[in-house]
Structure formats: structure tokens, C-alpha cells
Amino acid sequence: MKKEHNHMKNKKFGMCIDLDKCTGCGSCMVACMSENNVPFREDETDKRKSITWITVYKITNNRPFPDTEVCYMPRPCMHCEGHDGHSPCVSVCPATATDYDMATGIVSQIYTRCFGCRYCMGACPYHARYFNWWDPVWPAEMEKYLSPDVSPRMRGVVEKCNFCYSRYQRALDKAYCEGRSDIEEDEYQTACTQGCPAGAITFGDLNNKSHAVYKLKKSPNAFRLLERLGTNPKVYYLSSKEWVRKAGDNYIKGENPKNIKKSHH
């Protein structure tokens, strides 16, 4: 078969989220749930048991009234590359249920392989991984809206954002049928990117100079979460506010974020 296709250049899908634009409306979370067959329960107010692959954090500058400032921070899976693909979660999974794909830069989670040890959840500092504490139940006739592109998860396994990989698959299929071997930037966008009313999320190949994310990640306002840990995430944030950029990492009192050498990859 066609070996030449297989040396397609490695992609590195990533995201840039403009926090100045993000309004905290929550559409990304719901778009994701709807796209990815995420179940819901009667009481979802225990946020530590509530599955939302992308979660919008509300962060504040912790200053008293009226100097209080608030910023919303949507947090999908960061798809950490770590060092050579050894993201915090991938290397700890005992059953190889989660993996880093060098061809896409996407951290996969295979629900049918996972047996629910939850070690990966402990390893992830972003809390991007969710456990199915309950059997998924869709009341009334809601099973009808389930998408066949994403398999519903059984209880007792971990799940997380996969950058809507099923959309990538569909885009590729279309390209193949049209005789192309690769896709355009706009053919593969995640559900949260597409749904965001503010246009705050940009998604694309971080390796591809023609993609919007390539430029955005180099903005002086760009930062990533917990870069100092060496997780090497693929989600970039943009904020014009210094306190927001500083909240992305931990600093010892007196440390100047600008002087910190962050592990760069």
C-alpha cells in the first residue's frame, strides 16, 4: 500500500483560548457534552463528580471590593506532550489505556481498555480527567440524541477530552473520498471551538505555519498552565491582564515570572 502517505508530517493539534474574549457563558462545556455523549445526573452540583471534559474555571485576583477582578478560564484536556510524549497521565496508566500520539499530539483515552484504577487522574494536575462514578443513564427518550461517532462510556472508567477526534476522523474520511490525503484547517474544529459564541477559542495544528494557532501561541500575552512542571501542554491562553498570566503558574513570593525559565519544547 501507499507508504508515501505514511510519512505525512506529524501534526500537533492545539488550542489558543483568548481569555479577554471568553465570557464564561458555558457554551463550550455544553457543546462538548452534546458532541461527546457526556451523561448527566439529577444533581450535578458536586462539581468534583460532574463530568465536563472542558470546564470553565472562574479565577479572581483575590483583591477586596471594588478592586476585585474575575477571569474565566476554559480548561479542556491540555494534551500535554511532557517530555517526548510522556505526559503526566500517559506514563502512569498501567494498562496502556491512555496514549500519546506523535502524529496528532493528541492524548487518547480508550474507555474499553481502561479498568478504572484512576492513577491518571491523580497524575493530572489540571483535573482534566473524569471518572464515571455511575452508569450513564439518559432519561426519557434522550438516548435518541446520542451521537454514533462517540461511544458512550460505561461506569468505572476514566474519560476526558480528545479534541473531538471523531471530527478529525470524519474530516479525513471526506478528504479521502475526495482524493485528498490531508484536510484543511477549517475542516477539523472541535465542538467547543465551533460553538463558542465569542470566538475565543482557536484550534489548529501548532506545527503548521499557516494555521491561526501558530501565530497566536507566539503572542506576548500567551501563556500555558503550569509550564514550570514540565507538562508541556498544547493549550495556550491569551490574556492582556498580568495577574491572569501569573495565575497560570505558581511562583514563590518575590519571584518574577519573566525571569523564570520555563521548560520549553
Partner: peptide, 21 residues
């Protein structure tokens, strides 16, 4: 909306198939 959508609009599907009809 030019492609954007809000949480309630997205959930419209649950109003269609849900148990409150």
C-alpha cells in the same frame, strides 16, 4: 450568531427528547 451557540440553545435537543413534554 454566525456559528456560535449558547448553552440553552444547545440543550434544546433535551427539551425535544426529554421527559417534560
Amino acid at each position: 450568531n454566525d456559528g456560535g451557540i449558547c448553552p440553552i440553545g444547545l440543550s434544546g435537543i433535551q427539551l425535544l427528547y426529554g421527559g417534560t413534554r
